[in-house]
């Protein structure tokens, strides 16, 4: 297997091709690059620029015409001094540590079970599991909100006195996790299903000949071979968790336990829009982006290092 990891291609391999990249390739890349620069690189640059600015006040009671000044790293100091902002990171870490494994476990289980459902029903079930992903996060949260609020919730009615307060201080994070799991399990399942489809039939035949039952096939063949799909869904989920926004924003209306800076994204949003301080909001967004980036790459390097050491 080590031979597949080659260094730079030998001159023989590149043959007649010129050392300069093909102009045609750039032509094909241009539309992507233009959109990428305009919608990705430029906004990030702008956010970084804004994070270095601050408003200076003038006039009676500071209500006069404001001016803009260079703040250096003042906004970063201010953001990192806010304990509620730091706590919001702790909250999404905890959320991710529980929610991502549960969701991926469910996704893999559903995908493996689907393999055993034959023909027409497989399609119907797959579509059913995927359906919640088609419901926008805001709508999903409103739906679940009705199931959570005591007084209107049929679940609370059914359970009577034994019903927990889903929106209470210690519970609301897990009530949110439940919404996110409901939304995204089907989506992740679909990625796993696609990967399962790509496993060559010969492997299963060989396994059957070797006497492997369904359990052994699942554990020894399918699970190791869907590893790339799991890594992918895991990275998506880490990024998604860091950016948790719509669900807490909506559930906040029903749950006083959800504060204005419940998640880092919500905190940035509130600074930018509710408090009209776009400069602090830009700062918080940059910090969030750096943390999400660091986490994703840390996870990827952890996984690849493990892969390398296995070889």
């Amino acid at each position: 297997m080590t031979t597949t990891r080659t260094g730079s291609p030998t001159p023989a391999a590149t043959g007649r091709r010129s050392p300069r990249p093909d102009r045609a390739a750039w032509g094909f890349l241009a539309p992507f690059l233009a959109v990428f620069l305009f919608t990705f690189v430029a906004p990030i640059g702008y956010a970084v620029y804004q994070s270095l600015l601050t408003v200076e006040r003038h006039g009676p009671m500071g209500l006069g015409e404001p001016t803009l000044g260079f703040a250096g790293l003042d906004n970063y100091t201010l953001a990192l001094q806010q304990t509620s902002f730091i706590e919001s990171f702790g909250r999404v870490f905890l959320f991710g540590l529980v929610q991502i494994p549960v969701m991926l476990f469910l996704a893999v289980t559903l995908a493996l079970l689907l393999e055993h459902v034959s023909g027409r029903w497989a399609g119907v079930l797959r579509a059913t599991y995927f359906l919640p992903y088609g419901v926008p996060g805001v709508i999903a949260t409103i739906l679940w909100g009705f199931l959570y609020v005591p007084g209107v919730s049929p679940i609370s009615d059914l359970l009577g006195g034994a019903a927990p307060d889903f929106l209470a201080y210690d519970n609301v994070l897990w009530s949110l996790a439940n919404i996110v799991i409901w939304e995204f399990t089907g989506y992740n399942m679909l990625i796993v299903v696609a990967q399962l489809r790509s496993i060559p039939q010969e492997l299963y035949e060989a396994a059957t000949i070797d006497g492997a039952g369904p359990w052994q096939t699942a554990l020894r063949i399918k699970l190791p071979l869907i590893r790339p799909a799991l890594v992918l869904t895991c990275v998506f989920s880490i990024i998604g968790t860091m950016q948790l926004f719509a669900e807490p924003l909506i559930i906040k209306l029903q749950a006083p336990a959800v504060t204005g800076d419940y998640t880092p994204n919500l905190s940035a949003y509130n600074d930018g829009f509710a408090n009209a301080n776009v400069y602090l909001a830009a700062t918080k967004s940059v910090i969030l982006a750096v943390v999400a980036c660091a986490l994703s790459f840390a996870f990827l390097s952890l996984v690849t290092r493990k892969q390398r050491s296995e070889r």
Partner: peptide, 26 residues
Amino acid sequence: TRRDVLAWGAAVAAAPALAACAESPG
């Protein structure tokens, strides 16, 4: 890689253009 260099170059080139955007505090 070459692509990284290009991306960063573009970002640096974009910065003054962005700074020129009329950034007003209100």
